[in-house]
């Protein structure tokens, strides 16, 4: 943000010296917020306009007021929270399972030359398969219950976590490992005090990608075969021709995605400070 004044040349604020300088920064920030809100507001106005002029039939373009009302109803009846809790539990288990497996696999690939020689080519090949392509086969073997959802989502988490763990460990500079040898660290000590801090940003990157992939795959699986969860709410709204439910589910999915992203970013900044402390 400090480079702003350079790139924009003479700022109008600077041209108005009568304003107290300490007000300038908050005002500018408010201005940025206001600018960012313009487009959503314009879209909202367009939505309202389209509803009034019936660009699309009312049944497939629900009025904003109706969406708002449904959101309230679904929230207070607890239905939305139930669906969300189920979806989040699926994501949680999958991140745990797929992330754990990815961590192990990635560490094996990163630490052992033999593991790399045997496993890496297969892994790289399979990693290029789109996750949704696996789902029909998984349905054949696992049925359509929780096992399917957790397996499919775990698979989506496994790939980025493995790739990033592997990359993070391979990327550790040799001198750092040599230091460990000099100190005669045991294997757990090396892992904990050298490998983990050094590979942490990459590991975290993997986790972040994994969580985002999990959220993506969750919605797919729930749309395809489910009887509960936030994705199913969309299927349900569609079957009833109550599109406001679909929009509510979309907004919820977006909000959760945003919350996950913010939480991961916050965790990343915390991690960075922990890392500085560890060295």
């Amino acid at each position: 943000m400090t480079s702003l004044s350079n790139t924009l040349g003479p700022l109008p604020l600077a041209a108005a010296p009568s304003w107290p300088a300490r007000l300038a920064a908050p005002l500018r920030r408010a201005g940025h917020w206001a600018a960012g809100l313009l487009l959503p507001l314009a879209l909202f106005a367009l939505w309202q306009y389209a509803v009034r002029h019936q660009w699309l039939a009312e049944q497939i373009l629900p009025p904003p007021a109706l969406v708002w009302q449904s959101l309230g109803e679904l929230w207070y009846s607890g239905e939305l929270r139930d669906h969300l809790a189920i979806s989040l539990a699926r994501v949680g288990w999958s991140v745990l399972l797929g992330g754990g497996a990815g961590l192990v696999l990635g560490a094996a690939l990163g630490l052992s030359r033999t593991a790399r020689a045997y496993l890496l080519p297969s892994f790289e090949l399979v990693a290029q398969f789109p996750v949704v392509g696996w789902v029909p086969l998984l349905i054949v073997f696992l049925g359509i219950d929780e096992a399917l959802k957790v397996a499919a989502i775990s698979l989506a988490v496994l790939v980025p976590v493995t790739v990033n763990t592997h990359r993070g460990i391979v990327g550790i500079p040799r001198p750092l490992l040599d230091v460990g040898r000099v100190y005669r660290f045991t294997v757990p000590q090396t892992l904990w005090r050298v490998v983990l801090p050094a590979a942490a940003p990459s590991l975290f990157n993997g986790l972040r990608q994994g969580v985002m992939q999990a959220w993506l795959t969750l919605v797919f699986v729930e749309l395809l075969a489910s009887s509960e969860g936030i994705g199913y709410l969309m299927v349900w709204g569609r079957q009833l021709l109550q599109l406001d439910l679909v929009v509510v589910a979309m907004l919820t999915i977006g909000a959760v995605g945003l919350a996950l992203d913010l939480a991961l970013r916050w965790a990343e900044s915390r991690l960075a400070s922990w890392r500085r402390g560890a060295f």
């Binding site: 940025h32 600018a35 960012g36 809100l37 313009l38 487009l39 959503p40 879209l43 699309l56 497939i60 373009l61 959220w215 993506l216 969750l218 919605v219 797919f220 749309l223 994705g231 969309m234 299927v235 709204g237 569609r238 599109l243 679909v246 929009v247 589910a249 979309m250 999915i253 977006g254 995605g257 945003l258 996950l260 992203d261």
Partner: peptide, 25 residues
Amino acid sequence: RLLGPTFHTLKQISLFAWIPLLSIW
């Protein structure tokens, strides 16, 4: 400033969540 916040927010909507609306429209 105008488009960025909206773009970064919409990006968070999981891809497949667009399918129902798109197919209906």
